[in-house]
Design a protein around this nucleic acid. Structure first.
Lengths: 116, 116
DNA sequence: TATATTTACTACGACAGATGTAGTACGACA
DNA sequence: TGTCGTACTACATCTGTCGTAGTAAATATA
């Protein structure tokens, strides 16, 4: 059983996280759930990866954080909202992905049914 | 003009290089040319990236090196040959790529015609 | 003939992002 | 009472890429 390549994902975590913020703000725990669900359990982002991506992207102006409350309980959470810069970055990342994917696939041989 | 993502390629350089060795042994300079040609100039691998991949893969048993001569001139070159382990690794990497790609694409929105 | 470019590498250090480990804290549930 | 789920933060390590630099022989260009 093959697993996701964390070395490929590396270039895409920002994109994946920003995708989760496109329609509305969210917070760490929820985003990690979204990623798991959307990938049908195939990709489970590490907490440290996620939170360090948040701070990097906030520093770069792609997301903004604010403190909000959980519904029901008045417990605090840190929400993240994508900025205009972040949307721009996201769409550039999508283009970049498409181009990169096309290049890589020239070097991929599907089939190779164990013929080694 | 968008460029290749070196952070995505990161997970694929081994795969790309091994692909170039599938049919016959080759050496650094030639492989870098093959990559450039095959990608239509879209991906130009850095020398340091290439040679460090060689030594890493040799250490891991995916390739073997031997000293050969350039045709005509008797100049020495270091050739690399893919091993059986290397072929196995290559085909695993291809599977891994396919899976990873499928996951990532769930988070990619093509179109996004600048609507940010 | 002198010089620049191409070929064919090696060495070293910096850097970014992912990951492991650990720790905090609060609420629900058994 | 203790464990599990939620919601983080801090820190150190690892891996692979990349920049810089240097070497050296062969070939092309002026």
């Amino acid at each position: 059983m093959t697993e996701i390549s964390s070395d490929v994902i590396r270039g895409c975590n920002d994109t994946i996280i920003l995708y989760c913020l496109l329609s509305e703000p969210s917070y760490g725990y929820e985003i990690s759930k979204m990623i798991k669900t959307k990938s049908e359990g195939k990709y489970i982002i590490k907490e440290t990866t996620l939170y360090s991506a948040f701070s990097r992207m906030e520093k770069n102006g792609y997301v903004e954080s604010y403190s909000g409350e959980a519904e029901g309980t008045g417990k605090k959470r840190t929400y993240y909202r994508i900025t205009d810069e972040g949307r721009k970055y996201y769409s550039e990342k999508c283009e970049e992905w498409t181009l990169t994917k096309e290049v890589i696939e020239r070097f991929i041989e599907e089939n190779s049914n164990g013929n080694y």
